[in-house]
Computed example of a mutant assay.
Amino acid sequence: MKYVDEYRDGTLASRIAAAIAAEADPSRRYSIMEFCGGHTHAICRYGIEDLLPANVDMIHGPGCPVCVLPIGRLDMAIDLARRPEVILCAYGDMMRVPGSDRTSLTKARAQGADIRMVYGSADALRLAQENPDREVVFFAIGFETTTPTSAVAIKQAAALGLRNFSVFANHVLTPSAIQTILDSPEVASSGAVRVDAFIGPGHVSTIIGSAPYERFARDYRRPIAVSGFEPLDIMQSILMLVRQLNEGRCEVENQFSRAVTRDGNAKAQALVDEVFELRDSFEWRGLGTIPDSALQIREAFADWDAERRWQLRYTTVADNKACSCGEILRGAKKPLDCKIFGAVCTPENPMGSCMVSPEGSCAAYYLYGRWRDA
């Protein structure tokens, strides 16, 4: 297949759904976690869960970079933006995420902070060149997919001698999150959350490849299918996982072979390794503090590290007690299990990040009408 519409063919989707129904053993349950928020949105948008037999459960994982960023890190960015000499550049999906006292970047901008929405690090770099009398800080977030672009911006700033540009790095790592889920009491030892298999993230895997997941298949006995984002991609990945579980196999299968290889993008990996190094620990919303789960800027590029330049210090901030974002990110709850979903918490009045981000589970349920299932 060459065109997007072919990956959305309803007749083919019905055939794959029939194959899943035929091969799913009615005497057992299949609990499959899609890690990536992009997969969650595709599942809701195309009604994929409605095509599955009742004993195939989809569990939504923590693969939304906006959602897993803890409130304390957002507060650091807001405090930085309030400095009169600073222009803070952020992605649009971060703008309305509520921080402490429900203050967001949007509210801070309304109160006078100079906060600019950008499409990427190149926009922030250009702003620094156009405003030599201001300090331009790029609020960098994301998994392995967006990390290379931050590395490029830092290297370009160094090459240009651009001293009024810095990066507030909040890049996190997918394998660490998967291991934390598997090691958590909720999943391990037959806990409250059952995860039999994973749909591996597609975009992340274009960078890191499929090889980093092999240890989870081998050591934790969980099949993984790296998937694309179209409905037929996801349906095929579910069928691959059902077959693995039926046959007692635990392997990493690459459904997204048109974009993902086993070893990934070596050039991007080398670039990231040149600019970034592992942090000792990093706090994730919902998952807690995870060692070696995020990146920080290396000493060689310290002049472009906003945390060093501004001596930023992180403080843990508790989530809103009424919001179930943390449990939703761990797979312990679904959006409809949250008592304030669709009532107090809506996209116009978000109480947590899962309702704001375009990759958040709550936003997907609300946007595509899954709340009507209640």
Score class of each variant (00 low, 15 high):
residue 160 L to A: 12
residue 124 A to R: 05
residue 192 A to R: 13
residue 188 A to H: 01
residue 125 L to Q: 04
residue 201 P to S: 00
residue 159 A to T: 11
residue 131 N to E: 10
residue 130 E to Q: 15
residue 135 E to T: 09
residue 138 F to T: 07
residue 184 S to E: 08
residue 193 V to G: 00
residue 189 S to I: 01
residue 139 F to H: 13
residue 178 I to C: 07
residue 154 I to F: 07
residue 123 D to N: 15
residue 181 I to V: 14
residue 146 T to Y: 05
residue 136 V to S: 09
residue 162 L to K: 04
residue 162 L to C: 06
residue 197 A to G: 00
residue 173 L to D: 03
residue 166 S to L: 08
residue 177 A to F: 11
residue 157 A to I: 10
residue 214 E to N: 06
residue 134 R to D: 06
residue 158 A to S: 12
residue 128 A to T: 11
residue 133 D to Y: 08
residue 180 T to F: 05
residue 177 A to K: 14
residue 172 V to H: 06
residue 158 A to P: 02
residue 186 E to S: 13
residue 183 D to E: 14
residue 145 T to Q: 05
residue 130 E to C: 11
residue 155 K to Q: 15
residue 217 A to R: 08
residue 153 A to C: 09
residue 127 L to F: 11
residue 200 G to W: 02
residue 206 T to E: 10
residue 187 V to M: 02
residue 160 L to E: 14
residue 199 I to L: 15
residue 191 G to M: 03
residue 205 S to Q: 02
residue 182 L to Y: 13
residue 173 L to W: 08
residue 152 V to T: 13
residue 186 E to Q: 15
residue 126 R to K: 14
residue 129 Q to Y: 04
residue 190 S to L: 08
residue 198 F to N: 05
residue 183 D to W: 02
residue 202 G to W: 01
residue 142 G to E: 03
residue 206 T to D: 01
residue 196 D to Y: 03
residue 179 Q to M: 13
residue 127 L to T: 10
residue 141 I to T: 14
residue 208 I to N: 01
residue 207 I to A: 04
residue 132 P to Q: 07
residue 147 T to N: 10
residue 139 F to R: 04
residue 119 Y to E: 03
residue 211 A to K: 12
residue 155 K to P: 00
residue 176 S to Q: 12
residue 188 A to V: 00
residue 133 D to I: 10
residue 201 P to R: 02
residue 178 I to W: 13
residue 215 R to D: 00
residue 148 P to K: 04
residue 178 I to V: 15
residue 129 Q to H: 08
residue 167 V to F: 09
residue 206 T to G: 01
residue 153 A to K: 05
residue 180 T to Q: 14
residue 175 P to K: 10
residue 194 R to S: 11
residue 159 A to Q: 14
residue 120 G to N: 08
residue 156 Q to F: 10
residue 156 Q to Y: 11
residue 165 F to Q: 07
residue 198 F to I: 09
residue 125 L to S: 05
residue 147 T to Y: 08
residue 133 D to N: 15
residue 129 Q to D: 11
residue 217 A to T: 12
residue 121 S to M: 03
residue 150 S to T: 12
residue 196 D to W: 05
residue 155 K to F: 03
residue 126 R to W: 11
residue 132 P to F: 06
residue 126 R to P: 01
residue 152 V to E: 09
residue 193 V to D: 02
residue 120 G to W: 07
residue 127 L to M: 15
residue 181 I to E: 07
residue 120 G to A: 09
residue 120 G to I: 09
residue 166 S to H: 07
residue 197 A to R: 01
residue 158 A to D: 12
residue 215 R to V: 13
residue 200 G to I: 03
residue 135 E to S: 12
residue 164 N to L: 08
residue 169 A to S: 12
residue 126 R to E: 15
residue 209 G to R: 04
residue 192 A to W: 05
residue 193 V to L: 09
residue 190 S to M: 05
residue 169 A to T: 06
residue 208 I to L: 05
residue 181 I to M: 15
residue 186 E to D: 15
residue 215 R to K: 14
residue 179 Q to I: 12
residue 164 N to M: 10
residue 127 L to H: 08
residue 123 D to P: 09
residue 207 I to G: 02
residue 168 F to K: 05
residue 121 S to F: 02
